[in-house]
């Protein structure tokens, strides 16, 4: 019925005559738009703060309305700030390292998971390994910090038993120099099981005939994985890789804040937590707005750039 109507239309103004149903449908889809306007688009006007001198104003509204335009000074401010480079390095370096480690691990884990033929064992595995994803970072950090405690934790004794650490000269695993390894290991443990589900599902959708054919040709397990499974799920891999690349400057605030303490800030301060501390606690509204804008723009550039490269190389992209 609606199709006929839209066929009659000759593309006049506002899409032509609106039926009752059209109006209702439009109103319904506007409900979400209303939320986006208030909580996503209105804040975008606040970006003007990045070009104003609003630091240390009484509140954010004052900072927007009463302060002077300063052009790109706020951007210059963080590019000459030595603190910022340490934060940027923690963010970018750690995220690249994290991506290089977690991404292949998730993929390998998914491939291995699909090799587990025993149904009940596999279900049990999936149940267990996906569980930590649903637990908050607060709790996860609390558990890890307790386990890494020098005198009461279990990690030091394990490392000593494995001969990795000298029992006579134990080191405190919560020190700054171990922070990167700590956060990467925790991310792997918490999220691998959940992230691999998507790949497992994608692998499950591959046409079984391909495997039958490979088996008849005498392909072994590794060959099947490399020549059939991986190519068949490469579009899923591309999507998640591109999204991960676009997030190279973003971290979960909740993850890092939960692991931070005064002694490891050198290595644990990332843009997400730095913006919170500078913006909310120190009221440097303009400085952090500029930083936030820089962050958003870099994210978009990374996404568009990696999407472009991916389209050139594989013909696949997400935009």
């Amino acid at each position: 019925m609606n199709k006929e109507r839209s066929l009659q239309l000759n593309k006049p103004k506002f899409g032509g005559k609106w039926t009752k149903s059209d109006v209702q449908v439009f109103l319904m889809s506007s409900v979400g738009l209303l939320f986006l306007i208030v909580f996503s688009y209105l804040p975008m006007f606040g970006i003007v703060l990045a070009f104003k001198d609003g630091d240390l104003q009484l509140n954010i509204l004052n900072a927007i309305l009463r302060s002077d335009w300063v052009g790109l000074d706020n951007f210059k401010a963080f590019f000459v700030d030595p603190n910022f480079y340490s934060v940027l390095w923690n963010t970018l370096g750690l995220n690249i390292l994290m991506l290089l480690i977690t991404f292949p691990i998730t993929l390998i884990f998914a491939l291995l998971m699909c090799e587990v033929r025993h149904r009940r064992y596999r279900n049990a595995l999936q149940t267990v390994v996906a569980f930590p994803h649903f637990i908050s970072w607060t709790i996860f950090a609390g558990m890890f910090i307790a386990m890494a405690d020098m005198s009461t934790g279990i990690l030091n004794p394990i490392l000593e038993a494995l001969g990795i650490m000298d029992a006579k000269n134990p080191s405190n695993l919560l020190e700054a120099r171990y922070f990167w390894s700590e956060i990467i290991i925790c991310s792997v443990i918490k999220d691998t099981g959940w992230s691999c589900i998507i790949y497992v599902a994608a692998i499950g959708n591959i046409d079984p005939c391909l495997y039958e054919a490979a088996k008849l040709d005498g392909a072994n397990r590794v060959q099947v994985a490399l020549k059939i499974t991986l190519p068949m799920i490469s579009s899923t891999i591309t999507v998640f890789l591109l999204l991960a690349i676009s997030r190279l400057l973003s971290n979960s605030f909740e993850q890092f804040y939960a692991f931070q303490n005064i002694t490891n800030l050198d290595k644990s301060e990332v843009i997400a937590t730095y913006v919170y501390k500078m913006g909310i606690s120190n009221r440097r509204y303009s400085y952090t707005s500029a930083l936030g804008l820089f962050n958003s723009v870099v994210a978009i550039v990374l996404l568009a750039g990696s999407n472009f490269v991916s389209k050139k190389l594989t013909g696949r992209g997400i935009l």
Partner: peptide, 18 residues
């Protein structure tokens, strides 16, 4: 309008202001 918000945001400070 929906998709754009998935990739771009105004940042923390203006959001807190709203």
């Amino acid at each position: 309008l929906n998709m754009f918000t998935m990739f771009f945001s105004g940042g923390l400070i203006p959001y807190v202001l709203i």
